[in-house]
Structures are given as structure tokens and as C-alpha cells.
């Protein structure tokens, strides 16, 4: 299968196979007018198989979202058909409005327009806790 190269945009590479659609949703890529290619189960020497997302527009990407999902993702910046930069993401210390607290006793379940803020409390086990109620929310796709 052939997917065209992009001229000016971003390639999200080394996405854990199966995670691409979740990242597509969280980055709200469905709202873009440009060409977006979601390529699943690409053969990879390092990973066995992986997902790739190509975005044919130089948009700003929320790297915290990517780091939260998968710290192995690489972000390639493409200009005039050439890769000009490669960024690695890391597990963010704090994530804002990426996941919602599931604790029904948490103030975020009732208070209007309150940001959903999670803090990294245990990097080894990738545990994030709600800033308000301390509930952990280990949703990983």
C-alpha cells in the first residue's frame, strides 16, 4: 500500500500498534481540513508492528497528550518534503483536559468549567492522580 509523502506537516511515528485511533481522537485530528493518514499495523524491525499518523499541515501538536499515551512516539517535522526535526516525547508531569476523573465523588463531576488536571505521582508505573481527589486514572489505550 502506498501513502503519499507529505510536503509540510508532521509524522507521528513509532505509535504502539492499535493506539493510532485513540491518539487521532485525543488530538482532535478529525477537526482538521488537511489530509490526515492513519496507518495501522505497519511492519517495524524494532517494534514488530506499529502505527503511524501523517498530518499534511504544520499544526501545533500537544506533546503532553502523546507522552501520556506512549512515550516511545517520535514526532517528525516535515518542511518542503524533508525531515527537518525529530522530537521525542516524555511522560508529562501534568496533563490538563486529556482524561476525565472517573470518581463520582470528585468535585470535577459537578463543578462547571473546572479543568481536569492529573499529576504524575509514580513514573515507574505511569500512575497519574487527579489533582482534586487523588484518584488514579490509569487509562492507557
Amino acid at each position: 500500500m502506498t501513502i503519499d509523502q507529505i510536503e509540510n506537516g508532521i509524522v507521528l511515528d513509532h505509535i504502539k500498534a492499535g493506539n493510532a485511533m485513540a491518539i487521532y481522537r485525543y488530538l482532535q485530528l478529525d477537526e482538521l481540513d488537511c489530509t490526515v493518514a492513519v496507518i495501522k499495523n505497519v511492519k517495524s524491525a524494532k517494534m514488530g508492528k506499529k502505527d503511524i499518523i501523517k498530518i499534511d499541515s504544520p499544526i501545533d501538536i500537544n506533546l503532553d497528550v502523546l507522552g501520556y499515551f506512549d512515550e516511545n512516539i517520535t514526532v517528525n517535522i516535515i518542511r518542503d518534503g524533508e525531515k527537518i526535526a525529530k522530537k521525542h516525547v516524555c511522560l508529562p508531569e501534568k496533563i490538563v483536559n486529556i482524561v476525565k476523573c472517573k470518581n463520582p465523588r470528585c468535585i470535577t463531576s459537578t463543578e462547571q468549567e473546572l479543568d481536569q488536571v492529573f499529576r504524575l505521582t509514580d513514573p515507574e508505573n505511569r500512575v497519574y492522580r487527579c489533582m482534586y481527589c487523588d484518584s488514579s486514572n490509569n487509562y492507557l489505550p
Binding site: R105, C106, I107, T110, E111, C130, M131, Y132, S135
Partner: peptide
Amino acid sequence: HPKEGAPMA
């Protein structure tokens, strides 16, 4: 407050 985290908010 009955909701957890209300004082922080």
C-alpha cells in the same frame, strides 16, 4: 464539602 477536592477548586 461532600465532594472531594472542592476546597482545592
